[in-house]
């Protein structure tokens, strides 16, 4: 008993201060790939190597339309490796959660040279940077308290994932990420939940269980789709056994990219979703 007490008392603070200060990321961490569309000479090698069809091409008459869908990206970094012009770069950005699925998609159109490489960028979609603004931990805590009394109750639903996302959600509860410091906790029943945190791809065999869980959650309920597969079906896509992303089955309020999203990315997405609660009321 003494040893246990001693251990409990002698361990210092291990909790990471994110989001009050930026997350501590290792130098090797692979986050969002950034595309310098104007400088990009050829999208074909990247599209060819991309494991999940996050980069897709539509070839036209001496023109090419490139679509980059971060909702399908598994952050493997191969697109950067094969793009010899240096226009694709792996960054350490991970705060990519968004309320609008369309925010995760970028498009670019190119006029082509005879050899199929890009001659000129003719048009490109813009990204709404303002959405990326996020609240500090303290503001957030206050927001949750003011909207939900003291706490936010989350019900996690694995609707077919490989369990990778669950590992990172579980990590939110460890002493390093300690999500409870925000008054956020995980509950056993959807009836006690304010939020559903759903991973995918939604399988045919989980579709009904997911719908039932959604119906059992009292309103106003917030649904967060977690991970590449939860957003789009990921590498599994839609097939005889899967329905694809969570939004194919129930309405989704926030999407958190990542394969799986690191705990800080999950926290960031949950915070974004909480904002939604206050604006809906």
């Amino acid at each position: 008993m003494f040893k246990i007490l001693q251990k409990a008392l002698t361990t210092g603070v291990v909790t990471a201060p994110y989001p009050r200060v930026p997350a501590r990321l290792s130098e090797s961490f692979r986050g969002k790939p950034e595309f310098d569309l104007a400088r990009w000479k050829d999208a074909r090698p990247a599209a060819d190597v991309c494991p999940t069809e996050a980069i897709t091409l539509v070839e036209g008459e001496a023109a090419r339309r490139v679509t980059i869908d971060y909702g399908r990206c598994v952050f493997c970094g191969q697109c950067a490796e094969v793009s010899s012009d240096g226009a694709v770069r792996v960054t350490r950005e991970f705060e990519m959660a968004t309320r609008d699925r369309r925010d995760l998609i970028r498009t670019a159109e190119y006029a082509l040279n005879p050899d199929g490489s890009h001659r000129a960028l003719t048009s490109a979609s813009t990204v709404d940077r303002a959405r990326a603004a996020e609240a500090s931990g303290r503001e957030l805590r206050e927001k949750i308290r003011s909207t939900l009394g003291r706490s936010l109750a989350i019900r996690e639903v694995d609707a077919g994932s490989c369990n990778g996302c669950e590992l990172e959600i579980i990590a939110l509860n460890n002493p390093v990420h300690d999500i409870e410091r925000f008054g956020i906790h995980f509950v056993a029943s959807p009836r006690h939940a304010d939020m559903l945190l759903v991973t995918g791809p939604v399988t045919r065999n989980m579709e009904m269980a997911l719908r039932k869980t959604y119906q059992a959650t009292p309103e106003p309920r917030v649904v967060v789709a977690v991970g590449t597969c939860g957003i789009s079906g990921g590498i599994f896509g839609v097939n005889y056994a899967t329905r694809g992303g969570v939004d194919q089955v129930i309405p989704v309020d926030v999407f958190i990219p990542g394969c799986p999203p690191r705990p800080e990315a999950l926290l960031h997405g949950i915070l974004l979703a909480v904002d939604r609660i206050s604006s809906a009321r």
Partner: peptide, 16 residues
């Protein structure tokens, strides 16, 4: 419950 058609899908993807 989490059957995702994985073995079938392997037959439709390039190895890389």
């Amino acid at each position: 419950y989490t059957h995702k058609g994985t073995e079938k899908l392997f037959e439709h993807l390039p190895i890389h």
